[in-house]
């Protein structure tokens, strides 16, 4: 592990009450990226938001609101990039089948993955041995 690399590994119960805790951790991490030259306040909001959206996706859809399941969040930070993984243990879904929202349709739902895709540089969802992982990467320079 190079000297400027940080790794954060968190497990929380599959419940929306933990969204603010994880979002706050994401904001704190953004504020520690002292080499980041962009608008740090905006970066902090965006990290908070993508963590929130990815967790809600895991809690509600992948883990089907089962409060006994857990969501694992892994965050890797280097000088070059920020990688966020959200692991679920559910059935999974096909991220490529999710279309951008119809902006004129006024639906209550369907903006979460769009927001993640808009704010991160790359997004993928894949099956692993114990479940699925949503991985989101943002270049920091």
């Amino acid at each position: 592990m190079d000297k400027n690399r940080i790794q954060v590994d968190i497990k929380v119960p599959n419940q929306t009450r933990y969204l603010s805790l994880i979002g706050r951790i994401g904001e704190d991490i953004a504020n520690e990226l002292y080499k980041y030259r962009g608008d740090r306040e905006t970066l902090a909001y965006h990290i908070n938001l993508v963590l929130t959206e990815a967790m809600v996706n895991a809690i509600r859809h992948a883990n089907a609101d089962d409060p006994d399941k857990t969501v694992r969040i892994l965050i890797y930070i280097s000088d070059e990039e920020l990688v966020i993984q959200v692991h679920d243990s559910g059935q999974g879904f096909d991220i490529n089948a999710i279309q951008s929202p119809d902006f004129d349709a006024l639906e209550d739902r369907g903006r979460g993955i769009f927001l993640i895709r808009s704010l991160m540089d790359s997004v993928c969802y894949r099956r692993e041995a114990a479940g699925n992982v949503l991985e989101m990467t943002k270049q920091l320079h």
Partner: peptide
């Protein structure tokens, strides 16, 4: 802070 669910509630 608002997420897609918050936006969705206001749309509703």
């Amino acid at each position: 802070f608002i997420d897609s669910s918050g936006l969705g509630a206001l749309v509703s």
